[in-house]
C-alpha cells in the first residue's frame, strides 16, 4: 500500500514537472478599466417609432484580463395597438452578471473584446390593456384589463464584439438571447412586452444591442501569456541525409518551423 502511494506521488510530481517544462511564462501589462456605457439603439428606435422607448446603461469593472463584472439598468415605455387590442407597459429592469473575453491578453490588449456576457435579469413593470375585443359565433365582446404591477425574471446570453476606437472610448455590439424564467402575470395574462426581455409570450427572445462606452483605467496588472518552449528535434529519428538543419522559433501559442 505504501509502495503504491509512493509511486502515485512520484507520477503526480512527474506530471506537474513536465507541465512546467513544456511551457515558459511571459507577461504583458494590461490596464484594467471601469467601463460606463449606454445602449444606443433604444433612443434611435424611439426616434423612428415613438411607441417604444427603451434606455439602458451599464457599468462594468474588469476583474482581470478575461473577466468583468457587469451591472446594467434600463427603463421601458411601451405602447402597442392593433385591430383587436391596445397594450401599455412601463417599467424598469436590472441585469447583473459577467463578461468573458475569449481573446488572449496579447490580442485583447485591454482594448478589444470578443466574448460572451452572462446575465440574470430582474424586471418590474406595470401592464395595462385599455381595450381588447373578441369575435365569435355570438358576436363581438369588448373588455379591458386594469393596470397592475408584475415581476419578470430572465437569463441573458450576450455574445458580442467591442473595440476601443479612440483613447478610452469603445464601440461595440452584442446579440442578446434571453430565456424567460418567470413572470408574476401567470400563464393567462403574459405581458405583450416587458422591460429588459421583450415579447413576454415567448419563452426565448433575441435582440441586438449597440454600445457606446467610456473607459476609466483604474489599475495595471501583468497578464501571463503562456509560451511554448521550442521543440527539440530528436536527431536519432532522422533518416535520409542525416544532415537536416532544423531551426525552431516559438511565438505565443504556436511553433514556427523553417
Amino acid at each position: 500500500m505504501g509502495r503504491t502511494l509512493r509511486y502515485s506521488i512520484s507520477i503526480l510530481f512527474l506530471f506537474i514537472g513536465s507541465s512546467f517544462l513544456a511551457y515558459a511564462q511571459d507577461t504583458i501589462p494590461i490596464t484594467l478599466k471601469i467601463k460606463i456605457g449606454i445602449e444606443a439603439s433604444g433612443p434611435m428606435i424611439y426616434y423612428a417609432d415613438k411607441k417604444i422607448l427603451n434606455t439602458e446603461g451599464y457599468i462594468s469593472v474588469d476583474l482581470n484580463e478575461k473577466r468583468s463584472a457587469t451591472i446594467a439598468a434600463g427603463f421601458l415605455r411601451y405602447k402597442f395597438s392593433q385591430y383587436n387590442y391596445q397594450y401599455l407597459n412601463n417599467g424598469s429592469y436590472i441585469k447583473a452578471g459577467m463578461d468573458f473575453n475569449f481573446l488572449k491578453p496579447d490580442k485583447a490588449q485591454g482594448k478589444y473584446f470578443i466574448g460572451v456576457g452572462l446575465r440574470y435579469g430582474l424586471s418590474r413593470f406595470s401592464s395595462e390593456t385599455p381595450s381588447f375585443e373578441i369575435t365569435n359565433y355570438w358576436g363581438t365582446t369588448t373588455s379591458s384589463l386594469p393596470v397592475r404591477n408584475y415581476w419578470g425574471h430572465f437569463l441573458e446570453l450576450a455574445p458580442g464584439v467591442r473595440a476601443e476606437v479612440l483613447k478610452n472610448f469603445t464601440l461595440g455590439w452584442s446579440i442578446n438571447i434571453r430565456k424567460l424564467i418567470y413572470t408574476s402575470t401567470g400563464n393567462d395574462l403574459k405581458p405583450v412586452y416587458f422591460p429588459g426581455y421583450g415579447d413576454g409570450s415567448k419563452s426565448i427572445t433575441a435582440g441586438l444591442s449597440y454600445y457606446i462606452v467610456w473607459n476609466i483605467p483604474y489599475r495595471k496588472i501583468k497578464a501571463i501569456i503562456r509560451k511554448d518552449v521550442p521543440e527539440e528535434k530528436d536527431d536519432t529519428k532522422d533518416t535520409g541525409t542525416g544532415t537536416q538543419n532544423t531551426n525552431s522559433n516559438s511565438q505565443q501559442g504556436s511553433t514556427i518551423r523553417q
Binding site: D49, Q82, K111, Y112, A163, V165, W173, G207, L208
Partner: peptide
C-alpha cells in the same frame, strides 16, 4: 485586430438593418 473591428462594424450596420426589419408586425 483592426480588421476584426472593421468586420464587426459591417456586421453592426447590417445587424441594425435586420433589427429594424424585424420590428415589422407579424
Amino acid at each position: 485586430m483592426r480588421k476584426v473591428f472593421t468586420g464587426s462594424l459591417l456586421i453592426l450596420v447590417s445587424g441594425f438593418i435586420l433589427f429594424i426589419l424585424s420590428c415589422t408586425q407579424g
